[in-house]
């Protein structure tokens, strides 16, 4: 399990699904207060759009960005092309918000960022490009800051590990890299 110190010291890229789930679980404010959260502009747009479907939580991302609680970088579209080019089997299978998260991750020269996702395809992608150590589940993040609410399977560590292993095995079988 990732340690509390590690989680607090790293930049946490959160994808749209996890932003929504964290609000529904009422752990969003805890995340903001204890982690350095990064939401690329596309994720912010997607989350605002998705939140309109729910009436059981209040999404205030724009306000939180203004207050400096969230960093919201805006990448050039060409950076998405790099994500796709880096791993040919994946274009078209990952949505735009996750693509921008992955683009930020790939551009992050000092490797300080982690991506928190609930999508199997993201963990598989990270395994293919040999960056699986940069993926993290919401369960691991929350554990790192001392919270442990009951979570759906796709938000748990076991889910991340399962799909990371699967991605690794696939890439190896496809000859994408060698051990």
């Amino acid at each position: 399990m990732t340690s509390s110190k590690t989680i607090r010291s790293r930049l946490l890229l959160i994808d749209t699904c996890v932003v929504i789930e964290a609000h529904r679980l009422d752990v969003w404010q805890a995340l903001l207060s204890q982690c350095q959260v990064i939401l690329p502009e596309t994720v912010v747009g997607e989350a605002i759009q998705v939140a309109r479907e729910f009436d059981d939580f209040d999404l205030r991302l724009e306000h939180e960005i203004e207050e400096g609680l969230i960093q919201s970088p805006s990448l050039d579209a060409s950076s998405l092309k790099i994500v796709m080019a880096r791993c040919p089997p994946f274009p078209g299978k990952i949505d735009a918000g996750e693509l921008e998260c992955l683009a930020f991750l790939l551009e992050d020269a000092d490797e300080s960022s982690l991506i928190c996702s609930s999508d199997a395809v993201v963990f598989r992608y990270l395994a293919w490009v040999q960056l699986s150590q940069r993926g993290i589940s919401l369960e691991e993040v929350l554990h790192g800051i001392g919270i442990g609410p009951p979570l759906e399977p796709r938000l748990r560590k076991a889910f991340r590990e399962k799909w990371t292993q699967k991605g690794f095995a696939e890439a190896l079988q496809a000859g994408f890299f060698e051990l």
Binding site: V50, E53, G92, K93, D95, E98, D119, V121, F123
Partner: peptide
């Protein structure tokens, strides 16, 4: 379910919103 596409891509394929897709995908 095989982890081949993302959640939002799946919702998009099904022409459903995020919440509505949850009932089908989850």
């Amino acid at each position: 379910r095989q982890g081949l596409i993302s959640y939002r891509r799946a919702a998009r394929y099904l022409r459903k919103g995020f919440k509505e897709a949850q009932d089908i995908l989850e």
